[in-house]
Nucleic acid binder design. Structure first.
Lengths: 344, 344
DNA sequence: CTGTTAGCGCCTTCAC
DNA sequence: GTGAAGGCGCTAACAG
C-alpha cells in the first residue's frame, strides 16, 4: 500500500502542529478562519484522508455496527437492512451483516465475532431458538454494547426493539378470512418462543374467538418458514377428516408451499381453500395466483431501528429505559383469499 | 462501556512487561513455555480480549473486507456472500456488505466509504453502468487495495476475477431450445458493457449460428433484471408480426415477467412459447410452472472469490498477474421449456 | 488561537 | 527469554 498522508505531513508542510491540523479539520471553533482554510486546501491538495482506525482507537468507537439476521435472501430482511443503511451511512457508520441461518451456534459465533470487531452496537433479529438462547445476549449486555431487536425480539429488560403489531396483522388477516365466510381456518405457525410468532398466533386466535367460531388448537401447526415445510404440513392438513377451508400462514414461504400442495391435490384457491401469508414478499405479488399477505414496511423498520441505535449511542446515561417502537401492519388482499376475483 | 482488560493489566498482575504478554499471546517462539502458559491462563481469567482496533492501527490491516453487490435480496448474491463469509470468517475477517442498487453514484459512494473504513480488500460485482465507470475502480487500484470481481466483472489489467462461463451457459440454454424444435428464439439481454451479459449474448448468438438458424438481431433486447421490465419487453415481442416461439432470458426475473405476460395473452408455455432464464433463483423451482434456468453455483463462486482475495492479501509482491477463475454453469431443465412435460 | 504533551492498545526492533 | 522504548495516526487536556 502506498504511504498515506497524515496530519503530520500537512502540519510539516504548513509549519504548524498536527494538533492544529486536527482541529482545523474537525471544525473546532477555536481556530482562525485563515489557517482553517489553508489546512483544508492543503489537505485536499495532498489527498489527505482521515485514518478511521486511528480515530477509532482513540475514541474507542469503531463506527461499525453489526446487523444479525436469520438470512439476507428474503426481501424482508434485505429491505430492513437497506433501511438501516440509509439511516446509518450518512452518520459515518458501516454495517457488518451476519447471517445465523437460524442456527444457534452461528448466532453465538456472530455475536462474539462482532464483539471482537469492536462494533458500536448490534441490531438483530433473533434466530429460531431450539432452546432458550438468552446467554447469547448476555455477552452483549454485560459489555454494555447497545443491542436493539427488530422484528424477531425477545423481551429483555432494558433492551429496545422495533417491531410491527403482529397481533393486529394476524387478527386482521384472520378476520378477513372470516368475513369471507371461511369457517375452519388453520394457522401455520412457527417457533412461538419468538414473540412475533406467538403474537401472530394470538391475533389469529383472538379473531376466531371474537367471531364466535370454534377455536380448534389442532389446526395450529408449528413449522419453519420454508416452502417445502409448507407443502409437508399442508399435505397433513389435507388428509384430515375435516380439513380446513382456509390457511393463515405466519410466513409467505410456507404459504407458497401450502398453495402448491393444495393445487396438486386438485383443489381450487380460493374457492376450496383460501390462503393468506405474512410479510408481503415480492413473489406474493408476482405469482399468477397472487397471494394475500401482511405488509411489514421493512424499510421503515430498518430506519427506525437505526434511529433507536443512534439515540442510545449518543446518550451517556446508559441506564435509559428501553424504547419499544411498534409499527402498524397492512393487509394486502390478493387473489389467493378473495372469493370474488380482483385484478391485481 | 466497561473498561476492558489490556495486555498491560495482565503484565502488571504477573510482574512482567506488556511486550512479553504480547509475545506469549501471539505464539512467538522465543518465550518460555512456563510464562506462555501463565499468561494464557491469566488472560482467560481476566477475560482478556484483543483490541482489534489497536492491532489494526498497528498493522495497517483492518481485517474487514468490503463486498459490493447490486442488491442482496436475490438468492444469487445472497449465496455468493454466504460463500465469501464461510471462507473469510475462519480467517478472522469481517465482511461489510454494500448495495449499489445498480446506481453508479451509490457505487462510487460505497467504494469511497469502504476505502475510508480501511478495508483490506474489496470483492465486487459491478453495477449497471450508464456510462463507463472505470474511474470508480481507479481509486481502489491507485491505493493498491486488492480488488476482485465476481460474476459481473470488467476486464482490467491486473485485477483478478471469479466468474462462470456465461458463454457456455447461454450456448447450452439456447441449444436446448433449438433441440426442442424452437426456431425463432428471442434473447432478453441486459447492459452488454457488463461482460456476463455480453457473453450470454454471444453464447446465444453462436448457438443459433451453429445450428444453421437465421440470426435476427431484432430479437435481442436489452432490458433490466426486473419482473416488470420482463413484462414490458414481452408485451412488445408479442405484438411483433412474426413473434418469437422461445425466449432465452439473461435473468430469471425478466423471464418471470415474460411468462406472466405470455400467459396473460392466453398463450401456453412451453407449447406456444418456451422460456429459459438464468441464475436458478429458488422461485424458478417453486413456480407452478417451474422455470428452466442456468445454475451458477453461487456459494462456490463466493468461496473462490474469497480464496483469491486471501492469496492476494498474503502475497507481498503486489504485481502478481491477475487470476481468472471460471466456473462451469449447469442447465437445469424444467417445465417452462420442455415440450414433453416432466415432473419436477 | 496555537503548540506541547500524552495516551488509546498493540507490536516490534534493539538491547541485555 | 525478557525488558525498554518507540511508533501506528489521531485527539484532548493543558499551557501559553
Amino acid at each position: 500500500m502506498k504511504k498515506k498522508t497524515t496530519i503530520y505531513d500537512i502540519a510539516k508542510k504548513l509549519n504548524i502542529t498536527a494538533a492544529t491540523v486536527s482541529r482545523a479539520l474537525n471544525g473546532n471553533s477555536k481556530i482562525s478562519e485563515a489557517t482553517r482554510k489553508l489546512v483544508e486546501e492543503t489537505a485536499k491538495e495532498m489527498n489527505y484522508e482521515q485514518n478511521r482506525l486511528a480515530q477509532a482507537l482513540k475514541s474507542g468507537k469503531s463506527y461499525n455496527v453489526g446487523v444479525i439476521v436469520p438470512r439476507i435472501d428474503s426481501n424482508f430482511f434485505a429491505s430492513v437492512i437497506r433501511g438501516i443503511e440509509e439511516e446509518l451511512y450518512p452518520k459515518g457508520y458501516h454495517v457488518i451483516i451476519c447471517q445465523t441461518h437460524d442456527q444457534k451456534s452461528l448466532e453465538t459465533e456472530n455475536i462474539n465475532s462482532l464483539l471482537n470487531a469492536q462494533v458500536d452496537g448490534v441490531l438483530m433479529s433473533i434466530s429460531q431458538a431450539q432452546n432458550a438462547n438468552d446467554d447469547n445476549f448476555d455477552a452483549l449486555i454485560k459489555k454494555n454494547v447497545p443491542l436493539i431487536f427488530f422484528d424477531r425480539k425477545k423481551d429483555i429488560k432494558g433492551i429496545s426493539s422495533v417491531t410491527i403489531d403482529d397481533f393486529k396483522g394476524a387478527y386482521e388477516a384472520t378476520k378477513h378470512l372470516i368475513d369471507q365466510g371461511y369457517k375452519r381456518i388453520a394457522h401455520l405457525s412457527n417457533d412461538r418462543s419468538i414473540l412475533i410468532f406467538k403474537n401472530r398466533y394470538l391475533g389469529y386466535k383472538q379473531a376466531i374467538l371474537d367471531s364466535g367460531l370454534e377455536f380448534d388448537e389442532s389446526l395450529v401447526i408449528e413449522t419453519q418458514s420454508k416452502v417445502l415445510e409448507g407443502r409437508k404440513i399442508m399435505k397433513q392438513l389435507l388428509e384430515l377428516e375435516h380439513r380446513p377451508d382456509a390457511i393463515f400462514s405466519s410466513s409467505d414461504f410456507t404459504a407458497l408451499g401450502a398453495i402448491q400442495e393444495i393445487k396438486e391435490h386438485g383443489l381450487n384457491i380460493p374457492e376450496d381453500i383460501s390462503v393468506v401469508g405474512f410479510s408481503n414478499e415480492p413473489f406474493t405479488r408476482f405469482m399468477e395466483l397472487s397471494i394475500t399477505s401482511v405488509d411489514q414496511s421493512p424499510i421503515e423498520m430498518g430506519r427506525l431501528t437505526a434511529q433507536v441505535f443512534l439515540e442510545e449511542v449518543n446518550s451517556d446515561k446508559r441506564v435509559t429505559s428501553e424504547k419499544q417502537v411498534v409499527l402498524t401492519p397492512e393487509l394486502i388482499v390478493r387473489k389467493s383469499s378473495l372469493r370474488t376475483p380482483v385484478k391485481h
